[in-house]
Structure formats: structure tokens, C-alpha cells
């Protein structure tokens, strides 16, 4: 019984921690991860710093938004399956509420002329934001011949109308095959 209570308590704490994280982080995944680290490593001491680094590595190499993967994983480490569900629910709840609110009033909002002017400008700003994200990921990568070929292939495939999902699946498969080929060569 005591164990059960403890688990329930942990789950509530997880939910609350991740609710705060979800509600307070602007600017998407990367910002969220440093916030998660402060909360669960420094404050709550649920996991060690080293574990956190591993968790982020896993979150980056599994499908799904990185922030959600990280929440799920931390939740699992602290409270098993239930913990992971509570942590994920917590991190999603605030953005969910805000988005429903925006979706409900967006059309009304957009009927204001001045807002429309602003959005005409903001659309241009979004190009700059995408460019910024591109530069950041580009410079964080080790760039060899394989990188350039894969980059060009994916870019051309999507631009010329091959669906995004097949491109992603092929890229993963080609990556795995490249390992197989180099293994066979080294034999």
C-alpha cells in the first residue's frame, strides 16, 4: 500500500513539474530541454546529470518531438509506465489549452485589419526563423561527402514532390545500409 501511495505521489509530482515546464517554455524543443534539466536534475534530483545527457541523446535519435521524448523518458525513469504517461500529459496540457483558445478565436482575431498587416510582416520573419534553424543544425553536423549527398537527395526529392514520409524512411534505411556495407568491407 505504501509503495502504491508513493507511486501515485511521484506521478502527481511528475505531472506538476512537467506542467510547469510545458507552460513556461517558449521557442520549442531546445529551450524546453534546458528547463527540464534544471527541474529534474537540479531541483528534484530525480536523475543525474549524466543520465540526463543520455536521455537527450535517446530523445534525439528516436522519432517524435524531442521535448516530448525527454518528458516521456524522465517520467519512465521516475515512475514507470504511469510516470511516463503523467509526465507527457503534464507537458502537453498547457500548450493544448492555449492552442484550443487560439484556435477558437483566431478567425475573429484575423478580421482586425491591423493584425492582418502584422501577419503580412511576420510571414517574412518566419523565413528568417527557418533560415536560423537551418544554420544552427547545419553547423552542428559533421559534414562529410555522405552528409552532402544525403542532404541534396532529401532536398531534391521533397522539392520535386516525393512525399516527406518516404524520404525520411529512405534516409534512415540508407543510413543503416551504409553501416552494413562498411561492416562487410572491414571483414
Amino acid at each position: 500500500m505504501a509503495v502504491k501511495n508513493n507511486l501515485f505521489n511521484n506521478c502527481l509530482q511528475l505531472f506538476w513539474s512537467f506542467f510547469k515546464i510545458g507552460a513556461c517554455t517558449f521557442g520549442g524543443g531546445a529551450a524546453m530541454i534546458s528547463f527540464i534539466a534544471t527541474e529534474v536534475v537540479d531541483k528534484k534530483k530525480w536523475i543525474t546529470n549524466e543520465e540526463m545527457l543520455d536521455i537527450v541523446t535517446v530523445a534525439e535519435s528516436t522519432p517524435g518531438p524531442i521535448a516530448i521524448n525527454t518528458s516521456t523518458f524522465v517520467g519512465f525513469r521516475v515512475g514507470g509506465v504511469l510516470g511516463s504517461i503523467f509526465a507527457t500529459l503534464g507537458s502537453v496540457l498547457a500548450p493544448f489549452g492555449i492552442m484550443v483558445f487560439i484556435a477558437a478565436f483566431f478567425d475573429l482575431f484575423k478580421s482586425i485589419t491591423l493584425i492582418n498587416y502584422m501577419f503580412a510582416g511576420v510571414r517574412v520573419g518566419v523565413i528568417a526563423l527557418i533560415f536560423k534553424a537551418f544554420i544552427k543544425m547545419w553547423s552542428a553536423c559533421k559534414r562529410d561527402a555522405f552528409f552532402y549527398v544525403m542532404f541534396a537527395l532529401a532536398f531534391c526529392a521533397v522539392t520535386f514532390g516525393v512525399g516527406t514520409i518516404p524520404v525520411i524512411i529512405c534516409a534512415g534505411v540508407i543510413g543503416v545500409c551504409s553501416v552494413l556495407i562498411s561492416l562487410r568491407r572491414s571483414k
Partner: peptide, 15 residues
């Protein structure tokens, strides 16, 4: 290996 293929593809998608 999979990530080695996926990372450049993801950047290609951003571009």
C-alpha cells in the same frame, strides 16, 4: 547509422 542518414535528410527538409 540510421541517424547518420536521417540528420542530413532532416536538414534537407528544413531547406
Amino acid at each position: 547509422g540510421g541517424m547518420r542518414g536521417l540528420r542530413p535528410a532532416a536538414i534537407g527538409l528544413i531547406a
